[in-house]
Design a protein around this nucleic acid. Structure first.
Lengths: 187, 187
DNA sequence: CGAAGATACGGACCGCCGGTCCGTTTTGCA
DNA sequence: TGCAAAACGGACCGGCGGTCCGTATCTTCG
């Protein structure tokens, strides 16, 4: 009974806002240059609408990130190998890390905005715990499995990825290659 | 000839500001809650003095961080084993990571403030490149040595350390233990 | 179908914070 | 002791995240 379906304009605006925010973030200028007012203007809505719908800036970024990550998440939960269940652990971990890396590469600015947002880091995002738990279980009972899972995830953090590509000039292929070799050496 | 020694009050104020900022950051309330005005007030100087001396907020944090890190840095460059030169590579890497972890634990709030500061991350800090280069060379010519060095450093990032201690409740000893085991498995 | 209640809208408004400016004070040198 | 250079400090500014409330839109029910 505590559920009331939202009005139609509300959900429509939600989509519009996502699209606008996505475009602004993607538009290679720095991540945190984009203000809430910018997003509101680009979406053609009032600032109040943004805050009512998402609570605060962090909420908006988190919602957008979750929406973009969703396909990958469901591919992992109920998809075909090598991402989905039923893949041998070692192989699946490699696939997960590679997929995560590609996601960060493709959504660099968004991921950066999320991971830099003051007081959150990746830790505290809903799905972080899921990813960690999954990898940790795939690692089996090796020593320090828990920490190893964290370390593997830390190896694909958005700001590291950005640094390696934008500052160090690594190509996508090189990065994937190195990550893969590193993962192999850990497993 | 482009060198002019600074006035005495300037250097004195610099120290006072360091002490005040350190105290405020350490005082467990969140890292980014501390404003420049707070620091100025605590140090008993005007806000202008802060900005003249350090340029901007990031500059102040970087300077403070560098000052606190300096002992560790020189212990690494010209110290006794296991941190200093002349230690076998594997062993030295473990020692370096452990030392870094302990440093992050002891200077948690400061390190957090630095690594979260918008648009910098750890990458872009002067000493990051040094640490990376050192570890990379200690790794020898194994595959993906470069990326591996980055990944090892990512495993001791301040926000991960904070998450593991404050949220997951790991003790200092447990953390060091796990990091050590992880490092062993990589080497 | 029409009206009333509920829900969402939007932009003026607020408080705070990083950063600047410039009149005043301190320092160092001769 | 006098004077220029350097540093000081706090009033001030612009912009941003977030709030508020009068208005517009939807939905439901008679």
């Amino acid at each position: 009974m505590t559920e009331r379906k939202p009005r139609k304009d509300a959900t429509r605006n939600r989509d519009v806002v996502f699209a606008a925010a996505d475009a602004l973030f993607a538009n290679d200028s720095g991540a945190e240059e984009v203000t809430m007012a910018d997003i509101a203007a680009a979406a053609g809505v009032g600032k109040g609408t943004l805050f009512r719908a998402f609570g605060d800036r962090t909420g908006l970024i988190r919602a957008l990130y979750a929406a973009r990550l969703e396909p990958l998440n469901s591919a992992v939960e109920t998809g075909d190998p090598p991402l989905g269940p039923g893949t041998p652990p070692r192989e699946r971990i490699s696939a997960l890390l590679d997929a995560m890396l590609c996601f960060k590469l493709d959504n660099r600015h968004l991921a950066l905005a999320l991971e830099q947002g003051s007081a959150n880091s990746p830790y505290g995002t809903a799905n972080y715990e899921d990813w960690h738990l999954l990898i940790r279980e795939l690692l089996g009972d090796r020593p320090a499995a828990d920490f190893t899972a964290h370390a593997l995830l830390a190896a694909v953090r958005a700001d590291l990825v950005e640094y390696l590509t934008d500052v160090r000039g690594l190509s996508r292929a090189e990065l994937r290659e190195q990550l893969s070799a590193f993962a192999d050496s850990v497993l």
